[in-house]
Design a protein around this nucleic acid. Sequence first.
DNA 1: ACCTAACTGTTAGATATCAAACTGTCAACA
DNA 2: TGTTGACAGTTTGATATCTAACAGTTAGGT
Lengths: 145, 145
Amino acid sequence: MKEPEFTSSLELVRWIGWAQKKSGEDWIRARELSHEQAFVLGYLVDNPGSIQRDIAAVSRTSAASVSSLLQGLERRDLVERRTEDGDERRKRVYATPAGAELISGFEDAMAATDDAILAPLDGDERATLLALLKKITAELPQPRR
Amino acid sequence: MKEPEFTSSLELVRWIGWAQKKSGEDWIRARELSHEQAFVLGYLVDNPGSIQRDIAAVSRTSAASVSSLLQGLERRDLVERRTEDGDERRKRVYATPAGAELISGFEDAMAATDDAILAPLDGDERATLLALLKKITAELPQPRR
DNA sequence: ACCTAACTGTTAGATATCAAACTGTCAACA
DNA sequence: TGTTGACAGTTTGATATCTAACAGTTAGGT
């Protein structure tokens, strides 16, 4: 019973997701960030001025989680929030220079870990996998709430 | 920027993992359990007397998490922990009758949601997907710590 | 103008997770 | 028999997540 059978694809999917989260951990922990904080900070560098609602959608979480996550980043002056355009509901979020500097190289590090995880597959197999996953996710619910 | 490109298989993998977690949520919430509590309780019905270390390995988490998770289940008398075999280190964990009753049908419900997620794929495609995922996970680190 | 509904973000309370430090127990070995 | 190291579990303090309830803002309809 120490060797489970793994007949379920979705069990393997969850395992891979876990491994991906783990694999960049050294890089992230060296900067005293959580995985989620790093992801959002990286996203903000590429998409400055995003509103929290969109950040929640992209990071597949809730507005409430984004709110508290950004509080942590704002406390360390890694991001800045302000309202613009005369719309007092939306808060535009920006990475500060310190935040951008801290996260630089994150995407490269993540791409490297992705490559490491997919290493057992050759080019054709990766293409097949991507096609199958797209077929599944096309039918999947979006985390909009 | 509202239509992300998704060139990364691993991004899709994480999305599917998220959807799987969400999909059984109604069933689980009706019983006032968390996803993780339900998983562990179900595991204990099939593997009575497991020790916490093994539960951590199977649920791909840490001994500390299992410790606090089981405290929640024990508070509601859904599981019971006791030492046996004269080994005072290991704590054998059992689902109580109430716990077993509460979780009955869980595995069927989970299997149904798995089927719903994989619905876009036919039998051959599912077999291909499973083979590719096994190839990846064969090289993946185990969450042992 | 006003009312209402939708939208955006926050808070509160619960659970999960992790790392690190700690306690207690067992076993091997001198 | 005593010491030492490995093992199992807990605690602590931080962050993330969820739901539900809440507050302020905007826009639409009458």
